[in-house]
Write a protein that binds this DNA or RNA. Structure first.
Length: 276
DNA sequence: ACCCTCACCTGCACGC
DNA sequence: TGCGTGCAGGTGAGGG
C-alpha cells in the first residue's frame, strides 16, 4: 500500500534493525518473489553478508551488503517486513525469511503476491531494469519546477496519470497524486501539456509539500518494525484532504468531494477547487 | 511511440 | 450465516 513516505519509513526501520548485522541464512520461500534469481542464488548471495546500508530509490528499498551485493525490494501493494519475536511462528503469506547472526528473524510477507525482490551487483544497480529510467528523486536538486514543466509539456496524457508514472515523477501513488493535485488546486483530468505555465510551480510545490508532510510525520515517530501499519501516515490523523472522502465536504470550499474511476482506479477531487 | 486497460493475488466490507 | 460483488495505496504486458 506504500508510496514514497511509507517506503521511506520501512527503509529507515530496516536501517535501524539491520545496520551492521550479518545474515546467517536467507530463504526464498516463494520463488516468484524474486523471478530473476533462483532460490539457490538468493540464499548463496546473502549467506554471511553484512548489511552496510539500507536506503530507498523511488518506491524500491535498497539493502547494500559488504560483499557488493544489493537486495532490491518493491513492496507493491501489500509487501511487509516483519521482525519476528523468538519462537514466533512464520506469519501468513511469508515469502522470504532472513535469519540474522544475533538469532533474530526478519520475515517478508505479501498477501497479494505483487511484491518483488532481486539480488543485483552494486556496480550494476543503476542499470537494472528496475531502477533504470526512474525519474529523479523528488527531494533531489534535479526535481525542479523546470524539470516538471518539461515533462508535462511533452505528453498529452491526463495529469493524474503522468504523476503516477514513475519515469516522470517518482514516489507518488494514487493517494499522494490526488492530494498533491488538490493542494495545487489543479484538475486531475486536464491534459498535462495544457497545464498553464503559472500552475506548474504550484503543482511542483504541492508535490513536495504532501511528501514532506508525510515524511516528517514518519520521521517524528519511533519506527516499529513489528507494528509498521501503526506508523503509516494518513493525513496527520485528520485524514486525507480528498482521498477516500467521496461525498464529504471539501475542507477548502465545502463542495462535495467526488470520486471518478477509470481503468479500475479511483481519483478523488474537489469539483469546485479543482475546476478545469 | 504513445497511451489505456487489464491481469496479477488475497481479503475485506458491503448488500441481499 | 453465507454468498456474490466491488474495491484496495502498484505496475508491466499487451493491444489499439
Amino acid at each position: 500500500m506504500p508510496e514514497l513516505p511509507e517506503v521511506e519509513l520501512v527503509a529507515r526501520a530496516l536501517e535501524r534493525a539491520l545496520h551492521g548485522q550479518r545474515i546467517a541464512s536467507a530463504k526464498l520461500i516463494r520463488a516468484g518473489l524474486a523471478p530473476d534469481n533462483t532460490p539457490q542464488e538468493f540464499a548463496r548471495a546473502l549467506r554471511g553478508a553484512r548489511v552496510c546500508e539500507v536506503g530507498r530509490r523511488g518506491k524500491f528499498i535498497v539493502v547494500r551488503f559488504d560483499g557488493g551485493q544489493v537486495l532490491l525490494t518493491h513492496l507493491r501493494m501489500t509487501g511487509q517486513f516483519k521482525m519476528l519475536r523468538p519462537s514466533q511462528p512464520l506469519p501468513k503469506h511469508t515469502h522470504a525469511l532472513f535469519n540474522l547472526d544475533d538469532k533474530s528473524r526478519l520475515a517478508f510477507t505479501d498477501q497479494r503476491h505483487f511484491g518483488l525482490m532481486k539480488i543485483a551487483r552494486a556496480s550494476e544497480l543503476e542499470q537494472t531494469k528496475e531502477l533504470r529510467g526512474l525519474a529523479p528523486e523528488p527531494f533531489s536538486d534535479d526535481f525542479t519546477p523546470d524539470y516538471l514543466a518539461r515533462v508535462l509539456a511533452r505528453t498529452r496524457r491526463m495529469l493524474k496519470s503522468v504523476l503516477l508514472d514513475q519515469t516522470k515523477v517518482t514516489g507518488l501513488g494514487n493517494i499522494y497524486a490526488a492530494e498533491a493535485l488538490f493542494l495545487a488546486r489543479v484538475n486531475p483530468f486536464v491534459t498535462a501539456a495544457a497545464l498553464s505555465r503559472r500552475r506548474v510551480p504550484r503543482l511542483h510545490r504541492a508535490i513536495l509539500d504532501v511528501l514532506c508532510e508525510a515524511v516528517s510525520y514518519v520521521r517524528a515517530r519511533d519506527v516499529d518494525l513489528e507494528n509498521l501499519e501503526s506508523n503509516y501516515f494518513s493525513g496527520s490523523g485528520s485524514g486525507w484532504r480528498v482521498y477516500d472522502r467521496e461525498g464529504e465536504p471539501c475542507g477548502g470550499c465545502g463542495a462535495l468531494v467526488r470520486r471518478v474511476a477509470h481503468a479500475g482506479r479511483s481519483t478523488y477531487f474537489c469539483p469546485r477547487c479543482q475546476r478545469r
